Simulated scan of single mutants.
Amino acid sequence: MKNKFFFAASLSIFLSLHFNAQENIITPLESKKIYVKGNALLIPIGVVNAGLEYQLSTKFTMQGDVLISPWKSFAGHEAQIYMGTIEGRYYFKEAFKGWHVGGNFSFGTYVVQKPNYWNDSQYVDAQVGASTPYINSQLYQKGFSFLIGVEGGYQFRLADNWNMDIFAGVGTSQDFYKGYVRGTGERYDSADGYNRSGEIIPYRGGVMISYRLK
């Protein structure tokens, strides 16, 4: 009786592993696809978001991309961002087709003016609870961030070798920065070293136009 139970259990485990392996079998190297892609939504504002998406198996891909916003001043605000992202994706149908979900990790450096500084109110140093001689609109932040998040989207064929990938993502951003006064470069805050903040934000999204390299 024990032998029959062991055999049945072993057969069940084997069949389960076999069918799972068949579903997500590693694609032979010579047949794996690679797409180069660029974010069409960001080009009109002079921001580059481009990368490569590489097929790992029948339903899994790995994407690496960079985002470059070179603006020392955009509409009167500092907006320099340099970010790299690694993202793993799972496609419900097959790689590069249909709905997908994924997880990603990003690292970026920046010189920006945060949106809550886009006004002429007097800056109050929250760390000491005192007013300062500065107004918000003359202040900016410089630092770096680590971001971890999830994404979802839909990719479909446009023409031979051409795809469109519509996606959006959200995650946690852990930021380390110092605050400076525009023009003088002096610190406006009283922090010893870096300020630190963490928040949940939408930080990925757009419409990628993809071209198959192989």
Rank of each mutant, 00 (worst) to 15 (best):
W118S: 10
T109E: 03
W118Q: 14
T109A: 06
K93I: 13
V101N: 04
G129D: 03
G103S: 11
Q80T: 11
G103D: 12
K97T: 15
P115A: 14
Y91Q: 10
N119M: 09
S131P: 13
T109F: 00
G88M: 09
S131K: 15
T85M: 02
F105E: 06
A126Q: 07
G149H: 04
Y140W: 13
V112T: 14
V124S: 08
Q80L: 06
Y123L: 04
V150R: 02
R89S: 12
Q122F: 05
S121E: 15
G149K: 01
K142R: 15
F107Q: 01
S145E: 04
G76A: 04
Q80F: 01
G152T: 11
K142P: 01
F92S: 08
F146H: 01
Q113S: 08
G88L: 10
I86H: 04
R89A: 10
H100N: 14
K97N: 15
S137I: 09
Y110C: 05
H77M: 04
F144M: 05
S121L: 13
Y154M: 04
Y91R: 05
Y123R: 05
W99C: 05
N104A: 11
V101I: 15
S137P: 01
V128H: 02
H77D: 11
F146R: 00
V128K: 01
I148S: 07
G98Q: 11
A130T: 14
V128N: 14
A79Q: 12
F74D: 03
Q80V: 13
G88Y: 09
G129W: 02
T85N: 12
A95G: 14
Y123N: 03
G102L: 07
M83G: 00
Y134C: 08
S137H: 13
S131Y: 13
G108D: 02
I135A: 09
A75N: 07
W99I: 11
S145A: 10
E94I: 01
Y110P: 02
G103K: 04
Y123F: 15
